[in-house]
């Protein structure tokens, strides 16, 4: 089995999707000739010149046109160049993409995948390191996915294309080329809505996703506790079953997220765990999150992102509550 990066795994997934289903198409800024600014769509326009389109610089039209393409039977995979740049399309996402199925009482579903590179850790310019998954997760009708490994990326992207409803597919930039792992050549799905228990443990549950998985795994390895580590993989809908069962089992939960703290995915997780597992908890849910501030420019980025000492401190505080 070939060892691939996330970029390669996503490229392979889209290659196979475009080959298999002529209704599938890719559109976005610089996704064709340039192969995407991260080269995720590299080479695809050559193989599928009628299915890959470089668009004008118009995020709103990229999403809005994707809605129209889907209404008329095609399956667009749109790319927004960075998470800071989907906001011009927010009106289309909130007002239409998320609502069509409900608005038409099930007559029109929109099989649209919006791929968005997200999160920090690569010392990029302003607006290139956003972590706004909670904004998307709050919108009824949207499915929000974030893989953390090449294997999951390929399987989740294929599942997203086949999902039938709009999927916001968030790709952590930091992971794009930092991990290589074995990825099957054939098409396969990683189920949407299922979290992944990376390792089992009994002292505490640690929940994280996307760009933080690798750093958290390393911190977990060095920690003197038996830790159950969960990768959410799907941000919305959350996998209640896996999350709550683990919280009940360990009685202690630490949530680690890159986004700011207030009204975030960690807020929702904490709320659900307290609501459903109150009597099983040995300590209140602990959150190690971004601060409620704008992501600093690169010279200050390390001050914002979590690191191993901070993770270990949070674990210790949780154990000693």
């Amino acid at each position: 089995m070939a060892k691939l990066t996330m970029v390669q795994a996503l490229n392979q997934a889209m290659d196979q999707v475009l080959a298999k289903d002529k209704r599938a198409l890719i559109l976005g800024e610089d996704v064709g000739v340039d192969g995407g600014v991260f080269r995720v769509t590299d080479g695809l326009i050559k193989k599928y010149p009628n299915q890959v389109f470089d668009t004008p610089l118009s995020e709103s039209a990229i999403v809005g046109a994707s809605i129209g393409l889907a209404i008329n039977g095609l399956k667009p995979i749109a790319e927004i160049q960075f998470m800071g740049f989907y906001l011009p399309a927010f009106n289309q996402i909130v007002a239409h993409l998320a609502r069509y199925r409900n608005r038409t009482r099930g007559t029109v579903n929109l099989p649209v995948v919006i791929r968005i590179p997200c999160h920090g850790g690569i010392r990029a310019l302003e607006h290139h390191s956003e972590a706004t998954e909670a904004l998307l997760a709050q919108i009824p009708g949207l499915t929000v996915v974030m893989p953390s490994t090449p294997y999951d990326a390929k399987g989740l992207l294929i599942a997203s294309v086949n999902h039938g409803d709009p999927v916001m597919f968030l790709e952590p930039i930091k992971v794009y080329r930092s991990i290589k792992e074995e990825v099957p050549e054939e098409m396969y799905e990683v189920p949407i809505g299922k979290a992944n228990i990376i390792q089992e443990g009994t002292d505490m549950t640690v929940i994280t996703w996307g760009s933080y998985i690798k750093d958290v795994m390393e911190a977990v390895k060095d920690a003197p506790y038996s830790i159950e580590l969960i990768d959410l993989r799907t941000i919305s809908p959350l996998d209640n079953e896996t999350i709550l069962a683990s919280a009940q089992k360990t009685g202690r939960v630490l949530i680690i997220q890159e986004a700011p703290k207030t009204c975030s995915i960690s807020s929702e997780l904490s709320s659900r765990i307290h609501e459903k597992c109150y009597l099983s908890l040995k300590a209140p849910v602990k959150r190690l999150t971004g601060y409620d501030i704008t992501m600093p420019l690169p010279a200050g980025e390390e001050l914002y992102l979590v690191n191993k000492p901070r993770i270990h401190r949070a674990m210790k505080e949780l154990m000693e509550f």
Binding site: D30, D34, P56, L57
Partner: peptide, 8 residues
Amino acid sequence: AISLPRSL
């Protein structure tokens, strides 16, 4: 505009 020529 990055890779997109003015004509497109």
